[in-house]
Structure formats: C-alpha cells, structure tokens
C-alpha cells in the first residue's frame, strides 16, 4: 500500500519531465526517438527503481538516522556535567564523528552522484576514475556536514562559514587543472539529493532541538549549503593530486634508469 503511494508520488514527479521531453521531441524536433522501446523500458525502470529506493529509505535509513541523531545528542548520552557548568563544544564529539561517517557513506550511495560519475568517466576517457571521484565528493560532503553540526553547536552565523568556503573555492579554482573545474562545480550540487537531504535535516533538527539556546526552526537550516560547497574543494583537490602523481611518475622512472 505504502509502495503504491510512493510509486504514485514518483510518477507525479516524472510526468512533467517526460511530458516536456516527449513534447519537444515530437512537436518541435518532429523525429522519432531512437530505440523507443528500450527508452520506455528505461523510464519504467527508473520509476520502479526510484520508488523501491524511496520505500527502503523510509523504512530503514530515515528512522535509523533520526534515532541516532536523537540518541547521540540526548543529555543522557553526553559526558556528565558538573553542577552549573556550561557544555563545551567538544562534548559533542560523537555527533561530529557520526556526521562525518554518515555524510560520507550516504554520499557514496547517492544515485545522482553515481549518474554524474558514470558520465565523467565516459567523457574523460579514463583519466577520471568514477569511484575516486565519488570518494572525493563524499569526503568533501562529510567535512561540510561536520562543519555544519559544529556551527549549530557553536551558534556561529552561517554567512561567515559560507564566505570562508567561497574563498577556498576561488583559491582552488585558480590552482586547479582547467578541465576539472566544471565537473567540480557540478559535484557540489549533486551531492545533496535523495538520501542525504533527509538525513542531514534529521541531524540538524535533532541537534538544534537538544542544544539550549538553539531553535530547530532557525538553526536547522544551513547544513545543505555547506555540504554543497566542500565537495567542490575536494574534487579540485583530487584533480590536483592526480595531476601531481602523473607528473611524478615519469620522473621516478627517469631517476631509476639513471641509477643503473
């Protein structure tokens, strides 16, 4: 029953897109779609796959995510506090570790990131390893979320962190190989999608409601923004590292041969 509801919602999400695509295809371009049966099967698979995926998330991952966020920020879990003392931000260390781990692991399973990395691997002709790309995105995302949880604990204004991240992005852009820049900027946007957004939201909400002086409504926002920016920085970092390793390789060989 629940599956049918989700299937229906996903269908509503796909219909406008399919209408636009096939509308333009038949009314403007006026040409048949190549291999139409295969494409239609593909659309049906996307519909069913996405529905199963969402159903599974709602049954397994989201309740667990909520539960963990609640448990890790609850007063009984945190180290005991002396009478009248203020909580130090480092008391929440398990939250930061959890934010990092869950951010990285959910990003690896993010379907839209898989899609982009498949394309990037195809086009780059093998210079970009799709799996390494996803790992760099996951690390950036994990760092962004961890920073976001720390911001909620500290109550810092979001603008300053975003400004700092922008400056880092700009510095990285100037130093990176040109060919990676568009892909890096894209990977910022794709990280936050089906799995990650609800999990981050649960984490931010749980944290903001358990910390004195934070309002879940006002402080819960802002994690997604940070999670979007840091992958840009790490993907460019990955490209720089790959380029550096590439440059080192022939030199090493030359060194070995001159030794002989």
């Amino acid at each position: 029953m629940q599956f049918l509801n989700i299937l229906f919602d996903t269908l509503l999400d796909i219909i406008p897109i399919a209408a636009i695509i096939f509308g333009f295809q038949y009314l403007v371009i006026r040409k048949k779609v190549k291999r139409l049966p295969q494409v239609l099967i593909g659309f049906v698979l996307v519909l069913i796959g996405l529905s199963f995926f969402l159903l599974g998330l709602e049954q397994a991952l989201f309740p667990m995510g909520n539960l963990m966020a609640e448990q890790l920020s609850s007063e009984s879990f945190l180290p005991s506090l002396a009478e009248g003392a203020q909580r130090h931000w480092s008391d929440y260390y398990w939250i930061y570790i959890f934010a990092f781990a869950i951010g990285a692991s959910t990003t690896i399973a993010e379907p839209s990131l898989i899609a982009v990395s498949i394309k990037a691997g195809e086009i780059s002709g093998g210079t970009i390893n799709p799996f390494m790309l996803r790992i760099s995105v996951a690390l950036g995302m994990a760092f962004g979320i961890t920073l976001g949880t720390w911001r909620i604990v500290m109550g810092l204004p979001l603008q300053w962190l975003v400004l700092g991240a922008y400056i880092l992005v700009i510095i990285q852009t100037l130093r990176s190989p040109k060919s990676i820049i568009p892909l890096a900027f894209d990977s910022g946007g794709v990280t936050t999608s089906t799995i990650t957004v609800p999990i981050i939201a649960a984490l931010g909400l749980g944290l903001a409601s358990s910390i004195p002086g934070r309002s879940p409504v006002m402080d819960g926002f802002g994690m997604i923004a940070l999670a979007c920016l840091f992958p840009i920085i790490t993907v460019m970092g990955y490209a720089q590292l790959a380029e550096w390793l590439e440059k080192r390789k022939p030199k090493n060989k030359a060194a070995v041969s001159s030794d002989r």
Partner: peptide
C-alpha cells in the same frame, strides 16, 4: 530495517539500469 535495506539495493540497481537505458540516451539524443 532489513526489508528496507533490500528495497534500497533493488531500487538503486533498477534506477541505474533505467538511467543508462532511458534517461541518458534521451537527453543526449535531444
């Protein structure tokens, strides 16, 4: 939890297949 995880794996598998059969070719063709 366990059935949910199985659904996630099935869903992800079908989605990626559908992507390569349907969404990618259509986008590129257009």
């Amino acid at each position: 939890l366990i059935t949910g995880l199985i659904f996630v794996v099935i869903g992800l598998t079908l989605f990626i297949q559908g992507l390569q059969l349907g969404l990618f070719p259509v986008g590129e063709g257009l």
